[in-house]
Write a protein that binds this DNA or RNA. Structure first.
Length: 414
RNA sequence: GGAGGGGUGGCCGAGUCUGGUCUAAGGCGCGCCCCUGCUAAGGGCGAGGCGGCCCAAUGGGUCCGCCCGCGGGUUCGAAUCCCGCCCCCUCCA
């Protein structure tokens, strides 16, 4: 949810943000109107309620005819109060719906849509096309797509043998780095309540991407960001230092509407594993924290000895919670293009406002915290690792940083 | 899944049977002050969250409303009575 004070004082900033995102400006006016009518309803109810309380005290002390007279008056008032209360509830619901419908205010992201990103930097040599990741994985019996499909359907797979071990090594490398920088290691639930899913903004325009279990009204998380964000729901945090968590979880995505896209291998799958960084910090520190997140992501890609680039994602391609987003894209030689492997978003106070997560400022007043998230290590990284480190004979050079976790310097073809 | 017990302020805990100064006792802890020859003991004062309204308006207000797990209901009036749900504990399956 956006800051209502910003909306009241500078509605044009919010309208401009909507234009940048390519979304409707009327949502802004709907919210302004809903805010207005909510306040009217509240004022009306409170006036009646105050009168009712005053009269109630008199009733308690009155006797005989005086009491009868008071009761006659107060009975009518009772009905009015009830009606006014219902009006407040309705106005608040309308207000909440309107509030949820407005995405975070864009800050500094380049204008345009998905293809209008800015390239911030490019690192490493771009390898020529060789065997693709699936061919290599099959050579090493690291991934079994066929049986994945047999057991669970398309876009499912088994990581087998060295593939499974390689993923574990990768995730542990990520977790070790996070812990080294002071993150608290977390293994999170994969199923969350609707309010947790809503709190992170995933039930908006991306709702069709999310698996829902109707029998229990639970959602499967698409990233541990969801569980980590909701971890401090309804709390007031001490934010002398940012609170940083590294969440390890399986992630689930329906990939609705992506039929025919990336059907080969593990680039686009329904289930994968990920170590995600998450930070609760002072709003004034959010921009710096975002840069740190990006730096940590790059550090890990460096350890994996991968060629990659960093892009500044355009406004129209931001998630509803993000005010700005940087993606790291690793070079995938078989496709001769860069593919996203990490993504870090600054959600400012948007998620915290939904989840009611606050801190105390210098005057001991409460205010919403800022939240940020970023990918550290994820299944998809196996693709560039295999492809960029393949050698002519099909063997795979294991990056130095991964060797301690994998116990091998090279994956030889059996 | 079944039976029972419980959910009250930062924490503990009284109040619920018997609805109305509950404007939620008391304790612990916390902050400031006093006293005290010094990390003790004692005394005093002060603390919550959300929202609305008003003003000489980013700081105020002896102003108002809401908050006793959540949501409904009964009643002139609900922490208290009734119904539903959630969570925790004990036992059973």
């Amino acid at each position: 949810m956006i800051d209502l004070r910003l909306l009241r004082d500078n509605p044009d900033i919010v309208r401009a943000s909507q234009r940048l995102r390519g979304e409707s400006e009327t949502a802004v006016d709907t919210l302004l109107a809903a805010d207005e009518s909510r306040r009217k309803a509240v004022a009306h109810f409170e006036g009646l309620r105050a009168e009712q309380k005053t009269l109630g005290k008199q009733v308690a002390q009155a006797k005989g005819e005086e009491k009868t007279a008071l009761l006659a008056r107060t009975k009518g008032l009772s009905a009015e109060v009830k009606e006014a209360d219902a009006a407040v509830t309705a106005a608040e619901e309308a207000m909440r719906a309107a509030h949820l419908a407005v995405p975070n205010v864009v800050d500094a992201a380049p204008p345009g849509g998905e293809d209008d990103y800015l390239v911030l930097k490019e690192i490493g040599e771009l390898a020529a096309a060789g065997r693709d990741h699936l061919e290599l994985a099959e050579l090493h019996r690291a991934i079994d797509m066929e049986r994945g499909a047999k057991v669970s359907g398309s876009r499912f797979y088994f990581l087998t043998g060295v593939g499974a071990l390689m993923q574990l090594a990768l995730l542990q490398l990520g977790m070790a780095q996070a812990v080294q920088y002071g993150f608290t290691a977390m293994i999170t639930p994969s199923l969350v309540k609707p309010e947790s899913m809503e709190g992170t903004g995933y039930l908006g325009s991306h709702a069709s991407e999310v698996y829902h279990l109707p029998a229990d009204d639970l959602y499967l998380i698409g990233t541990s960001e969801v569980a980590l964000a909701a971890y401090h729901k309804d709390e007031i945090l001490d934010l002398a230092e940012p609170k940083r968590y590294a969440g390890w979880s399986s992630c689930y995505r329906r990939e609705a509407g992506s039929y025919g896209k990336d059907t080969r291998g593990i680039i686009r799958v329904h289930q994968f594993d990920k170590v995600e960084m998450f930070s609760f910090c002072h709003p004034d520190q959010a921009i710096e924290e975002h840069q740190r997140m990006l730096a940590w992501e790059e550090e890990l890609l460096g350890k994996l000895e991968l060629a990659y680039r960093v892009i500044d994602v355009a406004a129209g391609d931001l998630g509803s919670s993000a005010t700005r987003k940087f993606d790291c894209e690793a070079w995938v030689p078989s496709q001769q293009q860069y593919r996203e492997v990490t993504s870090t978003s600054n959600c400012t106070t948007f998620q915290a406002r939904r989840l009611n997560i606050r801190y105390r400022d210098a005057e001991a007043k409460t205010a919403p915290v800022a939240t940020l998230n970023g990918t550290l290590a994820t299944t998809r990284m196996l693709v560039p690792i295999l492809e960029q480190h393949q050698q002519p004979d099909g063997s795979i050079r294991v990056p130095k940083a991964l060797q301690p976790f994998l116990g091998k310097e090279v994956l030889e073809v059996a």
